[in-house]
């Protein structure tokens, strides 16, 4: 019972956690790489800073997308069962939260295309 509930909550909030992880990683990576003088290093033909940002963004984006799909499935499962309203509620909220997280993650990746690495 409790285990299932925990899983439901984690699913519903998962996208936001993905956003938080992405945020911490890209900010940490940029600070560390710039602070330690790797501004001009490159990896796979692009700068190491944009590389770190874009790869992190991609991974977390995929994670959030998967969470969104799973919560969609959950939502459909509970849609027709009015008696278990907490389940329906959690799954529907999950869809919304994971959807919004997708946007937030996407926006975090935008700067990598526009700004110089460490200036």
């Amino acid at each position: 019972m409790t285990g299932r509930r925990t899983a439901q909550v984690l699913l519903a909030l998962g996208g936001m956690f993905a956003w938080a992880v992405q945020f911490a990683l890209i900010y940490g990576a940029t600070s560390t790489l710039c602070g330690r003088g790797w501004a001009d290093a490159t990896l796979l033909a692009i700068g190491v800073v944009p590389f770190a940002i874009l790869s992190t963004t991609l991974v977390t984006l995929v994670a959030a997308a998967i969470l969104l799909i799973v919560s969609f499935r959950e939502e459909r499962r509970w849609r027709d069962q009015p008696s278990s309203t907490a389940d329906a509620f959690l799954s529907q909220t999950g869809v919304l939260i994971n959807g919004l997280s997708l946007i937030a993650i996407l926006w975090n990746g935008v700067p990598a295309f526009i700004l110089p690495a460490c200036a």
């Binding site: 926006w107 935008v110 526009i114 700004l115």
Partner: peptide, 16 residues
């Protein structure tokens, strides 16, 4: 979401 998707890149370009 639409408005801010336009504003954010504009702001970033000015920043650059």
């Amino acid at each position: 979401i639409v408005t801010l998707s336009l504003l954010l890149p504009y702001g970033l370009i000015v920043m650059r």
